[in-house]
């Protein structure tokens, strides 16, 4: 299958990436190359094959309900692009 410009733009929006107008054709082209590469697997008969989301056919171990994490706000916010009064700051969000 080949992707259209519309699909690529929609996927870029979902991914929160800008694609400059002068690059869009290259992006479409290389996405189509990748899709052509992966197309091969469509020939595989996977009827009744269960998906394999993880190599381990194992099950989740659970953590005891204990508070183990101390307050490290100072350390974490030291590396934040913009933190004020203990809050992470972003341009105004209108709900």
């Amino acid at each position: 299958m080949k992707v259209s410009k519309e699909v690529v733009e929609q996927v870029a929006e979902l991914s929160q990436l800008n694609i400059p107008e002068n690059e869009i054709n290259d992006v479409i082209e290389s996405l189509n190359q990748v899709l052509a590469l992966v197309e091969e697997m469509q020939s595989v008969d996977t009827t009744d094959v269960p998906v394999m989301a993880n190599p381990l056919d194992a099950t989740q171990t659970l953590r005891a309900d204990k508070v183990t994490e101390p307050d490290q706000r100072g350390r974490f916010q030291e590396i934040a692009p913009d933190a004020r009064d203990g809050l992470y700051v972003v341009p105004r969000v209108v709900e």
Binding site: V7, L31, V38, M41, Q42, V44, T46, P50, A53
Partner: peptide
């Protein structure tokens, strides 16, 4: 590029043909 491919493979309408299929092939 990989983010775009991945978002595409997971998006509505393509999930089964790509992501799901790949996880079956993986098995």
């Amino acid at each position: 590029q990989r983010i775009l491919v991945g978002s595409f493979a997971l998006s509505a309408g393509y999930y089964d043909a790509y992501y799901r299929k790949a996880q079956q092939v993986r098995r």
